[in-house]
Design a protein around this nucleic acid. Structure first.
Lengths: 154, 154
DNA sequence: CACAATTAGATTGTGTACAATATAGAAAGC
DNA sequence: GCTTTCTATATTGTACACAATCTAATTGTG
């Protein structure tokens, strides 16, 4: 019995069996779903995430936003410059620590929060899930994410 | 009682309550986790996904790969050119339909499959989940993804 | 058969992601 | 105080993603 194909092993490599692809393709589905909603707000999806953090807490250094969103300065620096060009935020060097750039909302940036409430509620209805179902799913995904990030960080 | 802040509505906008962010950040966690494994194979994560489809079925037009992965020619054309430059695939115009570019594995591309088996098994052990747990999660995520894609496609 | 409409890929432009590097400021150790 | 080290951000280069547009090939219709 030479040259027998490892059928069980092949199952492991099937695209539809990969949870990573489920997550990857779901992430794209989210951004495609959000696109028309965010276009009205003049935001891209990653910009929307940054705004979410600022609507919770304002005047924070770039680094804090990066830790919250798992993004580094190479991503955030140009993104924040675009948000500043759109008059939604202001970037100022901290006087206590000149290395830090503090990100603050402009009045327009704060005002955008009210119009942004349409986004999560649209998703809720499109999902055809209950808040509890989505929340349970979210917790599972976050737990897996945190476990992977732990492994990556040794 | 004028100017009362809508506390419940604010909960909807909290970053940690967004399933989209859970998915988005989990997708990044996956690519970071896979990075050292895929570096050994000389692949990026999206390239790995393309190879997964080709290991299942070879000699398919670009369009089929795109439908499988939810990616368009703007993404796949340069990605496939890089895979061809790496000698893992060959791109040839179909003779029956000259609009189509057929993607076929090279012997090296096929051989890479054996070394790729380490990737899903590494994830499985890092996840600290059972195959059944991961599979159940995957199915939930795929169901949500498909529902969102339905809504986007009217 | 002619010709409009459709389809498959490629190209261009904008916007993430992230590794690697650079720089300037702050903190630590002596 | 001085120097080494660390930290926060910026910059550069590579690789996705995707909208919009373009071209060439095929299909559909009269």
């Amino acid at each position: 019995m030479a040259k027998k194909k490892p059928v069980a092993a092949d199952q492991m490599l099937r695209l539809d069996n990969q949870i990573c692809f489920a997550v990857y393709s779901a992430a794209h589905a989210f951004t495609r779903f959000y696109k028309p909603l965010l276009d009205r707000l003049g935001l891209t999806y990653p910009q929307y995430l940054v705004m979410l953090t600022l609507w919770e807490r304002d005047g924070v250094p770039l680094k804090d936003i990066g830790e919250r969103l798992f993004l580094d300065s190479g991503t955030l620096t140009p993104l924040l410059k675009r948000l500043e060009a759109a008059q939604l935020i202001k970037r100022t060097r901290s006087t206590e620590d000149e290395r830090q750039v503090l990100i603050a909302l402009t009045p327009q940036g704060l005002a955008l929060k009210e119009r942004a409430r349409a986004v999560p509620s649209s998703l809720l209805s499109a999902s055809a899930c209950s808040v509890a179902e989505l929340s349970a799913m979210k917790n599972e995904i976050v737990a897996l994410r945190d476990r992977l990030n732990e492994v990556v960080g040794e």
